[in-house]
Computed example of a mutant assay.
Amino acid sequence: MTAPPLALVAGTGFSDLDALEDRREQTVETPFGPARVTHGTWHDLPVVFLARHGPGHSVPPHLVNYRANVRALADLGARDVVAVNVTGSVDPDLEPGDLLCLDDFVDFTKQRPLTFHDGSGPEGVVHTDVSTPYDPDLRREILDAAAAVGTPVRDGGVYAAFEGPRFETAAEIRLARLAGADVAGMTGVPEVVLAREAGLRYAALSLVVNPATGVGDASEPITMDEIEAALARSRTAVLAVLDELVHTRATFEGES
């Protein structure tokens, strides 16, 4: 019996996974539109990789078809989703290159389709429990993998989701901090909620690449050059954590 694929989802700075072997591209048709994925193996483990922003980072965060993406992963048989989010730090103690394994979120988005359930389906109106939005067991896999390769990862963190594609104002970041946020980004929601609705286990590794607006030296604007430089320094550490997680899974499944 073929094991279900592990789903990996990533955005800025992670548009490709060089470690994947036996690569095969597929466009998955869903009721919400098409989703482009890459099938492959990593340490002989079946993996399906989805780049949120599409080929060449061509789709801005507010236009990502999150429903199609998550539905495609579920339709392909994935049960577990490990996501990578690139973020700005709301917590002033966080610096570019720091990593967090998220455990909660606050949603400041305004116009995205947030659910698979619009009330018209046979299930009627659905209210999804998100008291534990990020799966504890999958989070533990990320933290254990990070410890095994010696990469520090904060255990827990609150993700503030903003609409984008503009960066947040200083006032918005102050509001997020009052709400308990540690990092701010543009892609983590509704992805985590949709995964929950689809019955998928979901966990996210957040990479800090810049101080959010008003955090630190407020006189310095956020630039893509700054973000890309932080990504260049930190991408290897993120990939090392993913590699160890996949290797551990492959070893376990090979023994079972």
Rank of each mutant, 00 (worst) to 15 (best):
S206I: 00
R177G: 14
P211G: 04
P133A: 01
T132R: 08
H62F: 11
D103S: 11
S131L: 08
D182Q: 01
A204V: 13
A184K: 00
Y134T: 09
D103I: 01
V238F: 01
D217K: 04
T27N: 06
D182T: 02
T251R: 14
Y66E: 01
V241G: 09
L178C: 07
L231G: 12
R196V: 11
T223N: 13
V106N: 01
R79N: 05
A146L: 02
V90R: 02
I227Q: 05
A160R: 01
V84L: 15
A68T: 12
F162A: 01
D243K: 03
T236P: 00
G33R: 03
K110W: 03
G157F: 03
Y66T: 10
A147I: 00
V183C: 07
G216L: 13
G40R: 10
L138N: 05
L231K: 08
A229V: 04
P5L: 09
R23T: 12
A74R: 15
P96N: 08
A184V: 14
V28K: 05
V86E: 00
E226S: 15
P165C: 12
Y66G: 05
P60L: 12
V84R: 04
T251Q: 14
L231M: 07
I173W: 13
E95T: 04
L138Q: 02
P221C: 06
D137S: 12
T213E: 14
